[in-house]
Simulated assay, not measured.
Amino acid sequence: MSSSAVPLFRFGIIADPQYAAVAPHAAMDRYYANSLTKVAEAIEIFNGEELSFVMTLGDVIDRSFASFDDILPVYGKLRHEALFLLGNHDFSVSAGHLSEVAARLGMPSPYYSFSRHGWRFIVLDGNEVSTFAPLEGHPHRALAARLLAELQAKEAANAHHWNGALSDEQFAWLGNEIANAAAAGEKVIVINHYPVYPPGEHGMWDSERVVALLASQPHVIAYLNGHDHAGNYGKAGACHFVNFKGVVDTEKQNAFAIVEVHADSIEIRGFGREESRTLVYQAATGAGTSFHPAQACATLPSDPCNSCPSP
């Protein structure tokens, strides 16, 4: 239990609405059209709280660029700042709209960072190297095809076309942001669509180098994601890895959360199917960690270094 009953600040979390004006997929228990009502219900709860912002963890839509025209006005009723990141389904649009997705969501860029109350939030784009998000002919699309083929040859659990990876440039940027946060005395929360830990079929293709980096930094407190609609949790080093459940699943049950940041813990207040959790962390950022990952390499698995294994 936190030593302070009053949080330093709060923010809201929504994961995977995957809205589309289509019939449900009963076998997968996904009710795409119902996400309009579910997101509206979450926003009603959020509007009754004092929040710094509300972050949606990707997959705002399931398909069709026109779906944004239905669901984004629902966010217009939110009295707090609405922030977004990119999920794989957000790119289930025509080729002509691929380069417009981030702007349609009002994002400053596909990946970015911001600071609140002495904390730095680092927002990743796990689709940057993928077979669906880059424009046709872009080197990242060819690299993704090669990475996926290599993982499939190894029968890796995450060898799926609906996953992706960070570019080496974005990975270097992540490292710089973490270092700059330490210099500024900020604690860090990393946010992405894709899980990286515990390992599983929904994980990013370069999960291992991301986990090695985050788990080696004591001021990196949490990594928050969606994508795996069942939800999950793990801890490596000082970093808590929380996978939030998908809104789109089930006909009527919702899933969202309010995250309360305290001086020595993060309290996740789950609503509907989302679980409540207490994530304890050390208030001082200079403490060491008992986790000793392989050195975080600076290259994708297709250009391996000798210091860490390929995923």
Rank of each mutant, 00 (worst) to 15 (best):
L213S: 13
H202V: 05
V196K: 04
N158Q: 05
V129C: 00
L51V: 01
G272K: 05
G272R: 02
G231K: 06
A156M: 12
V211M: 08
L36H: 02
P7K: 01
W205L: 01
L36M: 08
A102Y: 07
V93C: 09
H89Q: 07
N176T: 13
L151W: 04
V211K: 13
H227I: 09
V6R: 15
P198A: 11
P304K: 04
D29K: 12
L151S: 10
A294L: 12
C239R: 09
G203E: 14
R10E: 01
A40H: 03
R63D: 12
H140I: 00
V247G: 06
F46T: 00
V190Y: 12
E186G: 07
Q152R: 11
N243P: 07
H202P: 06
Y32F: 14
I14P: 04
L105V: 09
G288I: 05
L8E: 15
I13S: 03
L124T: 12
D59K: 07
V196D: 02
H160E: 11
L151E: 10
L36Y: 03
M1D: 10
G185P: 08
A95L: 07
H292A: 14
P17L: 02
T56W: 02
M55C: 10
D303L: 06
H140W: 01
T37V: 14
R104W: 03
V22P: 01
H138K: 08
F171T: 01
R120N: 11
M28R: 13
I122N: 12
H140T: 00
N306S: 15
S115W: 03
F132S: 12
N163L: 10
H227D: 11
S3K: 14
G175N: 05
S2D: 11
R141K: 15
S64M: 13
A182P: 08
S4V: 08
E201Q: 15
A26C: 06
H80C: 05
F271T: 00
L36K: 05
R10L: 01
D249G: 06
G231A: 07
T37M: 13
V74R: 00
T285P: 13
D303N: 11
E44T: 10
P108D: 11
A284C: 08
S216P: 09
G246T: 02
F46C: 00
N34V: 05
S52Y: 00
A257Y: 00
V190P: 13
G126H: 11
N176E: 15
A26L: 15
A172H: 03
V6Q: 15
S167G: 04
S130P: 12
I221N: 07
E128T: 02
R120D: 05
N306D: 15
A230K: 06
F291N: 12
F84N: 01
G106E: 07
L78N: 14
A284T: 14
Q217S: 09
D59Y: 05
R277F: 02
P24D: 11
L148D: 13
I45M: 03
S302T: 00
L174G: 07
A183V: 10
S67C: 03
S265H: 08
D70G: 04
S94Y: 02
H140N: 06
S207Q: 12
E155F: 10
E50T: 14
F271L: 00
D70L: 02
L148I: 07
N127Y: 09
S302F: 00
S35F: 01
A42W: 05
W205E: 01
N232T: 04
S92L: 07
L98H: 08
G237Y: 04
L36E: 02
V22E: 09
